[in-house]
């Protein structure tokens, strides 16, 4: 069993920049997405094939869920790229993190007389850099979309107001809450995926055959549900930011 580390392990260096195993898998995930996207681009037709029909069915289902939160198909279609990309990226990277090559394929080195095993890949969400940056992008996007929908002053007036002391205090709390969102988003996702990875390592170490299977299925579900929670929370906060009636 290799050493469990909260930090993503460094694999190689590009100059002074250390490429970690989670960054490597994130880059591979993005490349896989790009290949599929480019392949799909030329095959999007007015009369859909089987694969396009499945994609459209999934998108329609996603849009229906978004409609229930945003209350309008037009808004759902406008925000689908952000929400959909967050959901797909997190879910697929979580699932790729469950592949047998992740955690088992790595580099073995000798360090002060000890064998050290560094896995080549690591689930991107099991690295705080990944979860924090997506949470930051999500929170920044919420603010940008809020400003676009309602205007700069109206949007930020909910954080900074002098109407009465209570509203001023609540506004400041909400402003601090925006930063807390980053922490909440990132640590929830990181905690779940990292815990899942640790659980699989320990179960795999204790009982290597058959027993890890239910836990693998559980992690497949966790990978989906965590991506869904992250996307849904972003969606709800976007809805609160862009809908004037829900803003206060």
């Amino acid at each position: 069993m290799h050493e469990i580390s909260i930090k993503a392990e460094e694999i190689f260096y590009l100059g002074t920049f250390a490429v970690t195993n989670s960054l490597l898998l994130a880059i591979i995930t993005v490349l896989l997405f790009l290949i599929v996207a480019v392949w799909m681009r030329g095959r999007i037709l007015m009369i859909p094939g089987k694969l396009q029909s499945i994609f459209e069915l999934l998108i329609e289902s996603g849009l229906d869920v978004m409609d229930s939160v945003l209350g309008s198909r037009k808004l759902s279609e406008r925000h689908l790229p952000l929400i959909g990309t967050i959901f797909l990226f997190i879910m697929i990277s979580n699932w790729l993190g469950l592949l047998p090559i992740v955690g088992s394929v790595g580099i073995e080195t000798m360090d002060h007389g000890y064998h050290t095993f560094t896995p080549l890949f690591r689930a991107p969400a099991a690295d705080l850099n990944f979860t924090v940056v997506i949470a930051m992008i999500s929170v920044v996007a919420i603010q940008v979309l809020g400003v676009t929908a309602m205007g700069f002053f109206k949007h930020f007036s909910k954080y900074f107001t002098l109407k009465n002391p209570i509203l001023t205090f609540v506004g400041l709390l909400e402003f601090v809450g925006e930063f807390v969102k980053i922490v909440s988003f990132s640590f929830r996702l990181f905690g779940n995926v990292f815990a899942g990875e640790v659980l699989l390592i320990i179960i795999g170490f204790l009982v290597p055959y058959i027993l890890p299977l239910p836990f693998l299925f559980l992690e497949v579900f966790v990978g989906f549900i965590q991506a869904f929670i992250f996307a849904m929370l972003t969606l709800v906060f976007v809805a609160m930011a862009v809908r004037t009636d829900a803003a206060h």
């Binding site: 580390s5 920049f17 940056v133």
Partner: peptide
């Protein structure tokens, strides 16, 4: 916690490209 601004930036760029 392993948080590094260079890794944050690269993960961010990764996501934005996607």
């Amino acid at each position: 916690l392993g948080i590094d601004w260079k890794l944050l930036a690269s993960q961010g760029v990764n996501f934005l490209i996607l």
